[in-house]
């Protein structure tokens, strides 16, 4: 019996242990994505076509992608910048140590507080009847919309709203990286005559660059694919790529199913491209690592 079971153990291939995972990944991640790619190049009657992808070249769809890219770019950039400033203030800026742990916990919460409730929170704050809007109007007689042209249900409004989860995500990712900056590096640099700014430009930022790029790519993809917040803020008529796709899936507004695949394919290309760019840049920025 003992011999039999050891023989069986030898015959059981190692990959059987990871088979369920790969089966799952194949069926519910990889094949669905691939089916979109194939669908984008399939003619209605079967066979290869570029018509679907070419069909993206309309003012509406081009505009939707462009708004989406701008929206994601700015919310990622601002998210990175603000998150970095806050993390640097906490880690390096001499703030009381007691702030750090609550801030990280809160960031964990806020980075997961997205979707519809987030939209509701911002409507209640800077929407037409929101707390700040009303306060500005009653206390100072300022009409937010008339005075600044600000409208929550616009791209700018979306960017500001997305910051609520982009900033804490950046804080969560960059704080460990900032912790990794050794005090001796700064001290060695200043002993060699470097100013604080020179230290950041020549040492600290190059060291942080891989993390910064990675977080930017992640934040970009994060807001590029976000449907729920935009949907709740601006409704189905907002012309951004994910909402266009959402409407297409729901009701086939484009009148051509092949175009829907092309639309989704374009989204994969853009988020995938952002991440590929990140990987290439990171490989170059990380020459000095093991």
């Amino acid at each position: 019996m003992a011999d039999l079971s050891s023989v069986r153990r030898m015959l059981t291939p190692r990959w059987l242990g990871v088979a369920p995972f790969f089966l799952f990944a194949l069926m519910f991640l990889i094949l669905p994505a691939l089916s979109i790619v194939f669908g984008a190049f399939r003619a209605p009657g079967g066979g290869f076509t570029l018509d679907n992808v070419a069909g993206l070249n309309t003012p509406t769809i081009r505009g939707a992608y462009w708004v989406s890219i701008r929206l994601s770019f700015w919310s990622a950039l601002l998210g990175c910048a603000i998150g970095f400033a806050m993390a640097a203030a906490i880690v390096l800026g001499g703030l009381p140590r007691g702030i750090r742990s609550p801030m990280l916990t809160f960031s964990g919460v806020a980075s997961n507080f997205a979707g519809l409730p987030l939209a509701f929170a911002f409507i209640a704050t800077i929407g037409p009847a929101g707390l700040i809007t009303v306060w500005l109007r009653t206390e100072f007689g300022i009409n937010l919309r008339a005075a600044t042209g600000f409208n929550l249900f616009s791209t700018t409004g979306l960017i500001i709203t997305y910051l609520f989860f982009q900033v804490p995500l950046m804080i969560l990712i960059i704080t460990p990286a900032l912790d990794g900056l050794k005090r001796e590096w700064r001290e060695a640099a200043s002993m060699l005559g470097a100013t604080g700014w020179q230290y950041w430009r020549m040492v600290a930022l190059p060291i942080l660059l891989p993390s910064l790029l990675g977080t930017f790519a992640l934040l970009f993809a994060n807001s590029f694919g976000a449907v729920a917040t935009a949907f709740a803020l601006a409704g189905p008529q907002l012309n951004i790529a994910p909402i266009l796709l959402f409407s297409q899936i729901r009701g086939d507004v484009l009148g051509n199913p092949g175009l829907g695949y092309a639309l989704a394919f374009g989204m994969i290309v853009i988020t995938g491209g952002a991440n590929a760019a990140y990987l290439i840049l990171r490989a170059r920025a990380e020459r000095w690592q093991k």
Partner: peptide, 10 residues
Amino acid sequence: FQAYALFPNL
């Protein structure tokens, strides 16, 4: 310094 403190990116 005790812990070398060479700049790792250079």
